[in-house]
């Protein structure tokens, strides 16, 4: 039978062996867990980014997505824009009728509204109601001038001070 000293020595020796085993286990666990944690982290980041939509292509717009239901109003880079749109170029974005004038058998279409200071009015060729077109039946009285800077332009000077620039339509 062992004496108490032998037992004590044996107990402390076994404690040291236990501690060495525990350290080894901890080292193995740390060595295994570190790469696993890294992989998990990368996977989580990838999933997060994926859900965030970083890798997604721009959505293809369908007719249902357009502003006007049933009408496709956006076309992708590879898509062909249909040519037979019933687009009235005498109407602006607000639905207002664009000004037109027929002068010397040439059609002039409104391109912009500017202040009378921005262009130099040249020669008055008549009043708006003298010409076929928008200004003939308009409630707004106007005077039509040629424009010094460009012979293809006419200016309709409205009685509110604004000036509508019309450009000659060429074929």
């Amino acid at each position: 039978m062992k004496s108490y000293n032998e037992i004590a020595n044996s107990v402390f020796e076994r404690r040291e062996q236990y501690q060495i085993r525990q350290k080894k286990k901890r080292r193995i666990l740390t060595r295994t867990l570190t790469p696993i944690c890294c992989i998990c982290l990368v996977a989580l980041l990838a999933i997060g980014t994926w859900h965030g939509g970083l890798f997604e292509k721009a959505p293809i717009q369908t007719a249902d997505d357009s502003v006007i239901q049933g009408e496709k109003d956006w076309y992708g880079p590879g898509e062909e824009v249909p040519q037979n749109n019933n687009f009235d170029d005498t109407q602006n974005d607000n639905g207002d009728k664009l000004g037109t004038i027929i002068y010397n058998n040439e059609t002039y279409v409104q391109i912009s509204t500017v202040s009378s200071d921005e262009i130099t009015l040249d020669k008055k060729i008549g009043n708006g109601e003298d010409f076929e077109g928008f200004y003939k039946d308009s409630d707004v009285s106007s005077e039509i001038y040629t424009v010094k800077e460009n012979p293809d332009l006419l200016a309709a000077k409205l009685d509110n001070g604004a000036c509508v620039v019309l450009k000659r339509v060429t074929d």
Partner: peptide
């Protein structure tokens, strides 16, 4: 078995120490 009992006694002390 007194020898096994001795081992178990030592195991008891080892359990407490560790």
């Amino acid at each position: 078995n007194i020898h096994i009992a001795e081992d178990l006694m030592e195991d008891t002390f080892v359990r407490i120490v560790t």
